[in-house]
Design a protein around this nucleic acid. Structure first.
Length: 922
DNA sequence: GATTCCACGTA
DNA sequence: CGTACGTGGAATCG
């Protein structure tokens, strides 16, 4: 096998730019009014090329005049081309700038068209052993396509069929398949068939099909005319003869010149690195945001990985006994990085393999099934910490599930968890995958499984790693090595930032607690769900038929809506309500007018279909989002434990999140929705669910952080907080506060912590904007510390670049400096809210750690012992036997209220009962 | 099949 | 023109 040839890609500059110009709308322009559609489309095609067919060399070729011979031979050649519009010409300098920034040479030759120069480059390059890829929207260049042979490279055409993204690579087979002739015959085909875009006349009555047949039968134009008497029919031969001169001239015009002198050698076109900052600046000016993202994720990402070295260790596949031997060689006190591999999902997790890395040794991976007795002892000692090796992990929760599945005891607390560490360092990142972290913090490329496989094959060193599965484990060993090298770097960064305490006191101990929650799950009664589901099915059907009646009763032409598609489609609903029925539009959204419940309620009087839609939405949401998926997990005839995942590294503020299913958004606000909570019950052996929640925790945090004396006083009074606040705002006695006053103040107090505006407050309370503003003014006058805290905090964040919670958890908000008013305002609201929501999250996390510890050491009367099941931001849900009920309740209330000393008391409410719905305070 | 938008459930 | 999430359906993209 010979080495693959390098590829030279040649961009047909005008052809591509022109194609983009007509394919994309002219309203694609910068805020200054410069039209950018051609430059945008051209750049998009270049990025696509670099991503999908990365060439070793690349140049963009342009016309510079037109050879006189062509016009002489065929005066009408390209005569129908309109002078290019100003909107197009003004973009040519932009395209030049793009080429320069991306390091793509631009070539042209005086008095020559790009076609001929491309052909000449292709001819020379293939003779020099290059493969050539011509990128164009011009079919004429199909004539260059060439298979290549031992000496010469191949020539292919990347042709943009339609628009800018529909491309196809044409090789010899593709050309022959499409036109029935070899590529070299294409000019003859074009001469016969004609080409309206170049104003080549062609022979009337001869299209692609006939031209192809004629050439297939007779080989050349000369062949056709020599045998003209053999051609069937009257019209075709007559027309051929009549247009003989034009056909012959067209062939010459269509045939490209492959012999032009080359202005620069091909070697000049070899790709270098893209100057990323220069491209970023240019794209920012041109407002090519999405293109920058695309370039970054594909080409620049690959460029960075290319530049990065890899991990050069030689992993071992551990056979029986080798894990024990490997661990035996790691000196005491030295940390060991552990990467578990599991399969399946809770509760049926399987332990597949374990990978280890440590200082001074090559990493090792072993399948759990080959672990011998010695290995198991060694791994058990490692996981439990008795062998004096600090554990370094990535996603420690997974290690807990692995240990349980493999039959090991519960792992000890890891010393470092790189995923959690990275989350604390950059909470807004989308993922914390090891490869991404390795590139960012170590400038090393972590090979994918495919790359490991390929490297093994190429070096012929597969050896013990012959199978695909072996490749996977080899990749795991590299991950362990990456983790090992990352841990120290991340830990130093965390310490340097002063976040070691946050991480050791809060995040690290939480890992085991979350693993417990996930393993425990919560018992769901499918019979209750099935009953509710049947009921909801009737209600959904009823709402549907009411909607049908409502639109049928309308006089207008509603044929399109008789299928009720609008019930599940906001887009169709907009069309029905605002176009056909002409109802009042209330709130703008990106794609038109909002149809969300709050807006629909404002126009519910205008048409009977609105109420039906609101009902349909409510019922189908409950059934489709909660009942049906849970039923699918549980079964309609039994109870079963459902195991959600609790994510520790998702929410930017420091909260947890829950998924598969999300058990943090089970309905409670409406009576019907609340019924779903009847299906959440104590598990086998347990009698009751015990729920404890923080009362108004975010408000208390705000009072503490702001230190506002009025608010502290209101909390200290022991009165109802909203009534007490209202009394101060309205200057009346607490006893004289009426319900309207209380609810207005309640709405505002909660809204404040979200960055509520007077406009938003007016919306929410259905009051005038003036009244809302007066309310806010009165509030801030009475509680000046709240205002200075909220807005002072935003300014501090603008200076430092981040917000901070009570424990030092940060959130970075670069948009606080944005030039864009909307983005900046959004960032300001985030900055306002993040310390409050985040501090509340910190408090709850500490509570979870403390509760878990207290529950573990408590002396329980009942059996089984109570366990924690859920965390819902300010609430913990446990299950217990009757015997343990009171003790657990007291433990929860005492522990939760005692986690931290704030300037206001942390109040904890509790409730319990035979289901989550029936958990009431006794 | 993957991604985006809208809507909506919770704190 | 109020923060933080996850999920489901439709529409859209490639």
């Amino acid at each position: 096998m010979t080495a693959p040839r390098p590829t030279l890609a040649l961009l047909d500059g005008y052809s591509l730019a022109y194609r983009a110009f007509f394919a994309l709308p002219e309203d694609l322009r910068t805020t200054t009014g410069q039209v950018t559609n051609a430059a945008y489309g051209f750049t998009s095609m270049v990025i696509k090329l670099l991503d999908e067919h990365p060439p070793e060399a690349l140049a963009a070729v342009f016309d510079k005049g037109r050879p006189a011979e062509r016009t002489e031979l065929l005066p009408e050649y390209k005569a129908n081309r309109k002078k290019s519009p100003d909107e197009f010409k003004s973009q040519l300098p932009l395209i030049d700038e793009v080429l320069e920034a991306m390091g793509i040479p631009r070539v042209d030759l005086e008095g020559q068209e790009a076609d001929d120069l491309i052909a000449s480059y292709a001819e020379t390059a293939k003779a020099d052993g290059w493969d050539v890829l011509v990128v164009t929207g011009d079919r004429d260049l199909f004539q260059l396509v060439d298979e290549g042979d031992g000496e010469h490279g191949a020539v292919r055409v990347l042709y943009t069929r339609r628009g800018i993204s529909d491309t196809i690579v044409m090789d010899t087979a593709a050309v022959e398949d499409k036109y029935g002739v070899p590529p070299t015959s294409y000019p003859m085909l074009a001469a016969l068939r004609g080409d309206p875009s170049d104003n080549i006349p062609g022979v009337p009555g001869v299209g692609d099909k006939t031209a192809s047949k004629l050439l297939a039968a007779h080989g050349t134009l000369e062949g056709i005319y020599d045998n003209i008497e053999q051609i069937r029919g009257k019209k075709v031969p007559a027309m051929l003869l009549e247009h003989r001169d034009a056909v012959m001239a067209s062939r010459i015009v269509t045939t490209v010149n492959r012999q032009l002198p080359l202005p620069r050698p091909v070697e000049d076109f070899r790709r270098g690195e893209i100057d990323a900052p220069a491209v970023q600046r240019l794209f920012a000016t041109l407002e090519f945001r999405s293109l920058w993202d695309r370039l970054n994720e594909t080409v620049l990402g690959a460029q960075a990985e290319e530049a990065a070295g890899g991990f050069d260790n030689e992993p071992h596949r551990g056979d029986t006994g080798e894990i024990a031997a490997w661990l035996g060689k790691v000196p005491g006190g030295q940390p060991v990085a552990v990467v578990p591999t599991t399969a399946g999902s809770l509760p049926a997790v399987e332990a597949v393999a374990i990978a280890l890395a440590a200082s001074g040794a090559d990493p090792i991976t072993a399948r759990t099934e080959v672990l011998g007795e010695d290995d198991r002892v060694a791994v058990q000692r490692l996981l439990s910490g008795t062998d004096d090796h600090p554990l370094w992990v990535h996603d420690g929760k997974k290690l807990h599930h692995f240990a349980r599945a493999a039959g090991f005891d519960e792992p000890t607390e890891p010393m470092i968890d790189t995923e959690v560490w990275a989350y604390v360092l950059q909470p807004s990142a989308r993922t914390y995958a090891l490869d991404k972290l390795a590139l960012e913090y170590l400038s090393k490329h972590l090979a994918t499984e495919e790359e490991v496989q390929r490297a093994g094959e190429e070096s012929g060193q597969l050896g013990m790693f012959e199978t695909e599965q072996d490749t996977a484990w080899r990749a795991r060993a590299f991950e362990a090595q990456a983790l090992f090298e990352l841990a120290e770097v991340l830990d130093a960064e965390v310490t340097q930032r002063g976040q070691a305490d946050l991480i050791r006191r809060i995040e690290l101990p939480l890992i085991a607690g979350l693993a417990d929650l996930e393993r425990a799950g919560i018992t769901v009664d499918g019979r209750v769900l099935a009953e509710l589901g049947a009921d909801l099915e009737d209600k959904v059907a009823d709402a549907r038929s009411r909607a049908l009646v409502a639109v049928e009763g309308d006089e207008r032409d509603l044929e399109d809506f008789q299928d009720l598609g609008f019930l599940d489609s906001p887009k169709k609903l907009q069309s029905l309500l605002f176009e056909h029925l002409g109802l009042k539009k209330t709130k703008k959204i990106k794609t038109g007018w909002s149809t969300d419940a709050a807006e629909l309620r404002k126009i519910v009087e205008e048409h009977p279909v609105i109420q039906a839609i609101l009902d349909y939405r409510e019922y189908s949401k409950l059934k489709g989002t909660y009942i049906d998926p849970l039923l699918a997990m549980v079964g309609a005839d039994r109870t079963r434990r459902v195991h959600a995942e609790f994510n520790q590294t998702v929410a930017v503020t420091g909260r947890l999140s829950s998924q598969n299913p999300n058990l943090q958004n089970i309905p409670i606000r409406t009576e019907l929705g609340r019924q779903i909570r009847r299906a959440f019950v104590p598990g086998e052996g347990y009698d009751t669910l015990v729920v404890a929640d923080y009362s108004q925790i975010e408000l208390r945090v705000m009072a503490h952080l702001s230190g506002d004396e009025g608010l502290l006083d209101a909390f200290g009074s022991g009165e109802d907080i909203h009534a007490a606040t209202a009394a101060k705002v309205f200057g009346v006695d607490v006893a004289d506060v009426d319900n309207t006053q209380r609810s207005k103040i309640k709405g505002m107090t909660y809204g404040l912590a979200y960055g509520l505006s007077s406009f938003g407050l007016a919306q929410q309370l259905s009051i005038g904007r003036d009244e809302a503003q007066e309310l806010m003014d009165a509030y801030f006058e009475r509680f000046p510390g709240v205002r200075s805290y909220l807005y002072g905090g935003v300014e501090e964040a603008r200076r430092s670049g981040y917000t901070e919670t009570l424990t030092g958890r940060r959130r970075y908000l670069p948009d606080l400096m944005s030039e864009n008013r909307q983005r900046r305002a959004m960032a300001e609201r985030m900055a306002l809210n993040a310390p409050i929501q985040g501090t509340a999250a910190d408090i709850m996390k500490i509570a979870m750690n403390d509760v878990r510890a207290a529950m573990a050491t408590a002396d329980w009367a009942g059996d089984p012992a109570p366990q924690l099941l859920l965390q819902v931001h300010d609430e913990l849900v446990c299950e217990a036997t009757t015997a343990d009920h009171d003790q657990l309740r007291d433990l929860l209330v005492d522990t939760m209220s005692g986690v931290i000393e704030l300037a206001v008391p942390l109040e904890v409410d509790w409730a319990s009962g035979p289901s989550w719905a029936e958990a009431e305070k006794h």
